[in-house]
């Protein structure tokens, strides 16, 4: 007989509600991406969702887990949408399908499924793709001016991009600035129409839309402020301390408002399964990601750094957890480390 234990009442929260709210909060950002850049994001989102659900169902079936119960929780959907927002919009369709499959299979189920994965599944897939297919991952970004309409986008994605090259651009603003600043001065670089007064054309509203979604999550208490604030804070601080010279380094506004910064700060780094857990731990974890993003963006070879920064800090999360336990009521000090040294 199952013992009924207290409490006899619970709040209305469920995992699927949490996940679906997360998806809903992603929508403003996704819409902005579609509006300012490309229909490709929409197609990506649909492809990723379908693939994620199919792969999830298949693996659950193989692992003899209750399929519907886990499909309903919406975690696969979150992974799919995150990937759709992060992958290049004009990459061939199979890249999305492959990426989503990798995320669900390698990122999640090989570690034991929901709640067991030490790494963020979407970022695992992103990193795998970036390492395995660097060309496709860096050249299939859409230009801001939306030159390809929906039909053309479909053609690019499903028939291979080499035939229709309109609307393709190789470099994101972050990448472009870093490449150009070695030759030019800040003034000359910023002449490029992809930049605007604050941040970059298209990327600034996209990041603001993700910020909006993130604030909604904060307001609904689905995430806490610790990770976003420490992430953005450490990124900004490093940018001010080290890279204040706009003639040598990417400026602060670009760091914060272009690339995947806001997406990372509010949606990727805050993935609870792979993040640190205590409040102090979250602060350290977020600050670590922010610092790594800055370091990789400035001195690394990759244009954007979210995936690697997040994955590296995922590694560190258990260690952080062990040393940042909060002080318990009535205790003189927090218990640290792996052994109880109190007695």
């Amino acid at each position: 007989m199952m013992t009924l234990s207290s409490p006899h009442t619970t709040g209305s929260n469920t995992v699927s509600r949490l996940m679906l709210t997360l998806c809903a909060a992603l929508i403003p950002g996704l819409l902005a991406l579609i509006v300012f850049f490309s229909w490709g994001y929409l197609i990506n989102a649909i492809l990723a969702t379908v693939t994620a659900l199919a792969v999830e169902a298949l693996i659950l079936k193989i692992r003899k887990r209750p399929v519907l119960f886990f499909l309903k929780d919406g975690s696969a959907l979150v992974t799919a949408l995150l990937l759709a927002c992060a992958l290049p919009p004009l990459a061939p369709w199979w890249l999305i399908v492959l990426g989503t499959t990798l995320a669900i299979l390698f990122g999640k189920h090989l570690f034991g499924g929901l709640g067991q994965n030490p790494f963020n599944p979407a970022m695992v897939a992103y990193a795998l793709l970036l390492v395995s297919l660097p060309l496709l991952m860096t050249t299939r970004w859409a230009a801001v001016d939306q030159s390809a309409d929906f039909g053309q986008t479909v053609t690019i994605i499903f028939q291979g991009g080499q035939t229709v090259l309109d609307g393709l651009t190789g470099a994101t603003p972050l990448d472009d600035y870093k490449q150009s600043i070695s030759r030019l001065t800040a003034e000359d670089v910023l002449v490029n129409p992809i930049y605007q007064t604050i941040g970059a054309v298209g990327w600034t509203p996209v990041n603001l839309a993700f910020l909006l979604g993130g604030l909604v999550l904060l307001g609904l208490r689905i995430i806490t402020w610790h990770i976003p604030v420490s992430l953005l804070g450490s990124l900004a601080l490093l940018s001010i301390l080290i890279g204040s010279d706009a003639d040598a380094f990417v400026p602060l506004s670009l760091h914060l408002l272009s690339g995947s910064t806001m997406l990372a700060a509010f949606f990727i780094a805050t993935d609870p399964v792979s993040a640190a857990t205590s409040n102090r731990g979250k602060l350290i974890y977020g600050a670590g990601i922010g610092a790594l993003i800055y370091i990789i963006r400035t001195w690394g070879n990759y244009p954007d750094a979210t995936a690697f920064a997040v994955l590296l800090m995922n590694f560190a999360a258990p260690l952080i957890d062990h040393y940042t336990r909060p002080r318990v009521y009535g205790h003189k000090a927090a218990v640290k480390g792996y052994k109880n040294e109190q007695d």
Binding site: L4, V15, L18, F69, F70, D73, I222, P272, K282
Partner: peptide, 15 residues
Amino acid sequence: AIEDSPCIRCGLCEQ
């Protein structure tokens, strides 16, 4: 109680 899902370490309990 409804069926429980795995812990996703959301941290709400800790809050």
